[in-house]
Design a protein around this nucleic acid. Sequence first.
DNA 1: ACCGGACCTCAACCGCTGGTAGAGGGTTGA
DNA 2: TCAACCCTCTACCAGCGGTTGAGGTCCGGT
Lengths: 219, 219
Amino acid sequence: MARPELSIGEVLQLLQAEFSDVTISKIRFLEAEGLVTPARTASGYRKFAAADVERLRYVLTAQRDQYLPLKVIKEHLGALDRGLRPAAGGPPIAPSTTDAGPAADDFGATGTDLSLTKAELCAAAGVSTALLAELESHGLIVADGKHYGGDAIVVAQVAAELSAYGIEPRHLRPFRTAADREVGLIEQVTGPRRTDQTQELAALTVRLHTALVRSRLPR
Amino acid sequence: MARPELSIGEVLQLLQAEFSDVTISKIRFLEAEGLVTPARTASGYRKFAAADVERLRYVLTAQRDQYLPLKVIKEHLGALDRGLRPAAGGPPIAPSTTDAGPAADDFGATGTDLSLTKAELCAAAGVSTALLAELESHGLIVADGKHYGGDAIVVAQVAAELSAYGIEPRHLRPFRTAADREVGLIEQVTGPRRTDQTQELAALTVRLHTALVRSRLPR
DNA sequence: ACCGGACCTCAACCGCTGGTAGAGGGTTGA
DNA sequence: TCAACCCTCTACCAGCGGTTGAGGTCCGGT
């Protein structure tokens, strides 16, 4: 019980068992990049708690096994910190895709599901509760109990941007209808459970939709 | 009948719909790296078959959505070629569409102004003239005079893939309706000429559509 | 026959990521 | 007091993923 925290050298020993290419300088670098923030002694020495080591392990695993860039790993860690619990997937814990952040929009393997409260959703999408309420009233966003999924962020963000063009939630109802029909068609084929096939099919139909819109846009 | 294969410029047009950052030089680079090996004409021009384009799509998707390094993507492709199904975490070949991405968006790029004859379209998409006729009869593909645009290839390809699931052109009419309505809404705001705004708006609505479908997919 | 645009190759160059190296110096504990 | 350990900071670096441009060829239209 004397000292639950480890010096950087001790951390190195610990991690080198699992990750042969870790070095002291790398650990320091990762701190400089904001991926881990160990406490400090009065004299400035880093002291790593178990949680810090765990975090490093997560980073190194994601790098080695999923080839993720540090930028992305950092976002994942940030999402975890904010209490956004992903559902299933990756290594130690699952990565989160949807944020205001960079792309990652497939229907596939990395299927990640956030669960947000109303307040979190509004904050993440940068919209007012009034807009959210309106979106809900038109069925564009639906809560599962008290929680919203990650896609709701995108819906809310886009709706907000569209309103700058004078397009309001009530104009968007047909989108809801179209999406429902689309999903209905998919479920007719694959059944009511989500499978790989469901996702493949969804990717296809969305691609179809996109191509159709493009083809009908004025030249 | 002349030419079932596409030139590099035509491939560019096709892919830019989905991947806004693809360039000619990037395609050539990917060939140099051995990720795709288009055939050549007698005079040395590259000619891409549908399979080559599919391969590029796979590469670009894996890069964008999974952040995989080219080296790894190459291995996956190699494995696929050898008939192995990709193991953990790889997308089969039916990944994402419109990305909810950073800065750039799908519709921002240059206009897709391919102009293909019926035969070329069928060859490029790998579909029968019968299927094409059916798609036309349901208004999913329309010819401008005797020629088809680049999006028609995507529509035809997707329709072909969907038919493997028992989904036939007549089931796809609602997609046409939805796309028409969507474009109508956009034109109401931006007028009947194609402008940057048109494209921005289209990118937004397609993103909305995608998010809605995702959100309504079975959990 | 000619012209412009699309295509070719090859070599040089570039920005970013993910670190490493090492100088110069403080801290700790035996 | 000394070795081992830790600190910061600046400089540098290699590889990845392309881009740029010079110089030249090919092809469809008039």
